[in-house]
């Protein structure tokens, strides 16, 4: 007996059509990248000078990580991890949207956060947990989400709490990762896959965990330096 439902589902998730889309998307990503690589020499010089203000010296060690130092004695070490090494958990929380104005009033440092120009603040939440009873009444942490254009598909999430740890679905950090330093603040910075960066640190009595997706390492470090001043 013909399974017509199976045929319909097969057509919905058509293997050949998806393959064509995948190849198209990889071509578009290459073109997008090329647009920013093939620039006039003079502009390239300006870009290089600007980048050097953040990261004066970079080198790759044997383990394929990026090490850099600058005049402020900041030390940036990006640990590269395989996605298979990440762990995950389900969280028992309630997330409630908050008004942007309320958010800035509570956390004025957010005015100084530097994200790439094509990105804008999209959502902000307060995360609540249970406090002994059934209801989610204890405020645990704040989460701010920035998103970029659809073409770039960039995303930044800043989570922070007064507690020692940020609650997270995914864990990227291990004890054997090399620590970085910005000013007097120690951080762990991890890169997973091609374009995802994560960091955690404690600054001004807040514990931060920040995720950046489809942004460059330079943009990610610039964001961190706008928070850790």
């Amino acid at each position: 007996m013909i399974n017509r439902i199976k045929e319909v589902i097969d057509n919905e998730y058509n293997k050949e059509r998806n393959y064509e889309e995948i190849i198209n998307k990889t071509s578009k990503k290459r073109e997008f990248k090329a647009r920013f690589v093939l620039v006039p020499a003079s502009i390239l010089v300006i870009v290089l000078i600007s980048v050097s203000l953040l990261l004066t010296k970079t080198s790759k060690d044997n383990n394929n990580v990026i090490v850099s130092k600058n005049d402020n004695n900041d030390y940036i070490y990006i640990n590269e991890e395989d996605i298979q090494n990440t762990a995950s958990a389900q969280l028992d929380v309630d997330a409630r949207a908050i008004q942007v104005n309320d958010m800035y009033e509570r956390w004025p440092f957010l005015y100084n956060v530097e994200v790439p120009e094509d990105m804008e603040l999209k959502e902000a939440f307060l995360v609540f947990v249970r406090d002994g009873g059934d209801d989610y009444t204890k405020e645990r942490q704040t989460q701010i989400v920035y998103e970029g254009t659809k073409e770039r598909d960039s995303y930044i999430e800043i989570a922070f709490t007064k507690e020692d740890e940020v609650l997270r679905c995914l864990y990227y950090f291990t004890n054997n990762q090399v620590k970085s330093r910005i000013g007097n603040t120690e951080l762990q910075i991890v890169k997973i896959g091609n374009t995802s960066y994560y960091t955690k640190f404690r600054y001004n009595d807040l514990t931060f965990e920040i995720e950046g997706r489809n942004i460059t390492g330079v943009e990610f470090i610039k964001l961190l330096k706008s928070i850790i001043v």
């Binding site: 996605i83 969280l91 997330a95 995360v127 989400v145 999430e157 997706r213």
Partner: peptide, 23 residues
């Protein structure tokens, strides 16, 4: 390995509200 990539894609695709809503 590919399932691992998919896992991360799914988790990142949905905003924090939708992730918690699923819980």
């Amino acid at each position: 390995y590919i399932i691992g990539i998919a896992k991360n894609k799914i988790k990142r695709h949905y905003s924090i509200i939708k992730r918690f809503w699923n819980v």
